[in-house]
């Protein structure tokens, strides 16, 4: 053979494995459908989890974004103290933003809120009882507690007020939901792997004579394994495409209908669905290949 003979051989063998893998998908009709269904059901659930999960995460980030600290200043803070204190807070690690709200602005905000009951605020212009304050936001809401502690030790600070319970409850809930989702997803994926390896094992059982003869005439284990790997891969990819199609269509419809509600918004389909779809494809082909490798192993010991 001339140069390139080795590459030729590799390509020829690769094509053979592809051909054999595809052929055996067709040959094992019902078993193939059973395996694909196992992947489909699993990935549909996994995909649902992911989409719901990402939306919840986005929503909770939104809420987290609204977690702020009100830092009230003592009346002894002079106008000169205000910017220096602000810089001091701003320079603390983990602080995202510091906004100064003077007592006049505070009153104005109160007015806007109380519109109908303006008489309650009558006479407060000349004798404003509200303190000056900063509105401080942490980079990570989990840091709120620590930052509040540090700020309250500064001079001229009367107290730091924020919704401690809300923050903590929200954070626990998010962590819990995330862990639960991950565990459930792993459980689902393992179930699918088990189902697939079982179905492929049955199809291999029917082909053990073929494997036996392959071994007798000197085929290497890898040579025998490859078509099964291709088959598993295809089962995974086919199994993933059904949920991808279903989820994309369903989500598009959902987004369209929910757009009527102004207060509630879903993530846009484009990065969410394409990333989820890619993930499902990868997971699907991985479980397919894993299932086939595991089940073929037993039959190679001849």
């Amino acid at each position: 053979m001339r140069s390139g003979g080795y590459t030729d051989t590799m390509i020829r063998i690769l094509l053979r494995h592809l051909r054999e893998g595809i052929r055996s998908l067709g040959r094992n009709g019902w078993m193939t459908i059973a395996s694909i269904s196992a992947v489909t059901v699993t990935l549909l659930l996994v995909g649902l989890f992911l989409i719901v999960g990402f939306n919840l995460q986005a929503a909770s980030l939104n809420v987290e974004g609204q977690v702020v600290m009100n830092v009230f200043l003592l009346p002894d803070a002079t106008p000169a103290d205000v910017p220096s204190l602000q810089t001091q807070i701003q320079n603390m690690p983990d602080v995202k933003s510091v906004v100064f709200v003077s007592k006049e602005e505070g009153l104005q905000q109160l007015r806007n809120k109380l519109q109908a009951d303006q008489d309650l605020l009558a006479g407060l212009d000349s004798n404003n009882p509200l303190p000056n304050k900063y509105i401080v936001q942490a980079k990570d809401p989990a840091q709120t507690d620590a930052i509040a502690g540090r700020i309250s030790t500064l001079a001229h600070v009367e107290k730091v007020v924020y919704q401690k319970d809300t923050v903590n409850r929200l954070l626990t809930w998010i962590a819990w939901a995330r862990n639960f989702g991950i565990v459930l997803m792993l459980a689902l994926i393992f179930t699918a792997m088990f189902l697939i390896s079982n179905t492929i094992r049955i199809t291999i059982f029917a082909r053990r004579r073929e494997i036996e003869i392959m071994k007798l005439v000197g085929a290497t284990n890898n040579f025998i394994r490859w078509p099964f790997l291709v088959e598993g891969f295809l089962i995974g990819v086919l199994g993933a495409s059904v949920p991808i199609a279903l989820l994309s269509t369903g989500y598009a419809i959902l987004v369209k209908n929910i757009a009527i509600l102004p207060s509630f918004s879903l993530l846009t389909p484009v990065p969410l669905l394409s990333e989820t779809g890619l993930f499902l494809l990868i997971v699907g082909s991985f479980i397919g290949m894993w299932g086939s490798v595991v089940s073929v192993r037993k039959f190679l010991r001849i």
């Binding site: 030729d8 051989t9 020829r12 063998i13 392959m214 005439v217 000197g218 085929a219 040579f223």
Partner: peptide, 11 residues
């Protein structure tokens, strides 16, 4: 042919 195919012989 199978015996030759599985050792990677050319067509």
């Amino acid at each position: 042919a199978f015996a030759l195919e599985v050792i990677g012989a050319t067509g």
